[in-house]
């Protein structure tokens, strides 16, 4: 049930966390990600950085099986979360996506629905919760998304009446309400102004004690501000697939990168 966080005893579990093994992804014949390996530890924030077009977002969309929705898209390799093979044939993509929430580049609340309806829509369709508890869930999710105080008096106003930053936090609340363990964020601040960005970053730090977070960003400062671990991806030449170049603690990646390509990127000489 919803109050289950934090789940006791899970830190100790070695398999608890995201591991990506030898992942390759294609759009039609075009290979966009090659031989990706990554371990994002449980209840930490892991950032994926790299120049645009390097396949960061595709990796993210492979994790919750959104990649396969694109016509002609293909995935090879393994994605495990909490020891579960996300691509196991007996596992339904829908239940994977309920367990692994996603926040998109642009805020995308459902425009015809109210703030409240947006917050609980995932729970509503999952039919797990009696109607009487929906408000409670909305409040918890909106509070964790640090939006509750701003909207509690106008829960039934249309979601599109909120500012861009508020809409994005509503989308985070919408994802949280379904009670996932892993949150994927695909450049969640790229459409927001600095103040709204700051609030989202603050929120990511605050929820990291409950959720495993993987965030894609093109903003290196953001990666240093919010993440515990960082992976750097790049492509060698235009048209090549993206690869992971280096992975480590954020302090190490930005302070003492091992790979010269990483060094060049984080010091601002490239990208």
């Amino acid at each position: 049930m919803f109050a289950a966080h934090p789940l006791p005893g899970r830190e100790a579990d070695q398999v608890d966390g995201l591991s990506i093994d030898r992942l390759s992804a294609w759009f039609g014949r075009h290979k966009v990600v090659e031989d990706m390996r990554l371990r994002a530890p449980s209840r930490k924030v892991t950032a994926l950085i790299g120049p645009s077009g390097c396949g960061k977002s595709t990796v993210l969309r492979c994790v919750n099986r959104m990649h396969e929705l694109v016509p002609g898209a293909r995935v090879q390799g393994g994605v495990h979360f909490g020891g579960v093979d996300v691509y196991a044939p007996d596992l339904d993509a829908g239940s994977v996506r309920s367990e692994i929430g996603m926040v998109f580049q642009r805020p995308n609340p459902f425009p015809t629905k109210s703030i409240y309806e947006n917050a609980i829509i995932g729970v509503r369709i999952a039919r797990t919760t009696p109607r009487g508890r929906l408000m409670e869930i909305a409040e918890t999710a909106l509070s964790r998304a640090q939006l509750w105080d701003e909207v509690k008096d106008r829960l039934h106003k249309p979601a599109v009446s909120l500012s861009g930053g508020q809409q994005q936090r509503l989308c985070i609340a919408r994802a949280i309400a379904v009670d996932p363990s892993l949150l994927l964020m695909d450049e969640p601040c790229s459409a927001l102004d600095p103040i709204a960005t700051f609030k989202i970053e603050e929120l990511i730090r605050a929820i990291a004690d409950r959720y495993t977070v993987v965030i894609v960003t093109h903003n290196m400062h953001q990666a240093t501000r919010v993440s515990d671990y960082t992976g750097f991806m790049t492509i060698e030449n235009a048209g090549d697939p993206g690869r992971l170049v280096e992975f480590g603690a954020t302090t190490q990646i930005f302070g003492a990168p091992v790979n010269p390509a990483t060094e060049a990127y984080v010091s601002g000489r490239v990208g």
Binding site: N64, M66, L69, G94, S95, V96, R97, S98, E99, G101, M102, F104, N108, P109, F110, I121, G122, I125, A126, C171, R174, A175, V178
Partner: peptide, 9 residues
Amino acid sequence: EAAVALGAT
């Protein structure tokens, strides 16, 4: 995509 990402059928 927002709907699908929430696990919607």
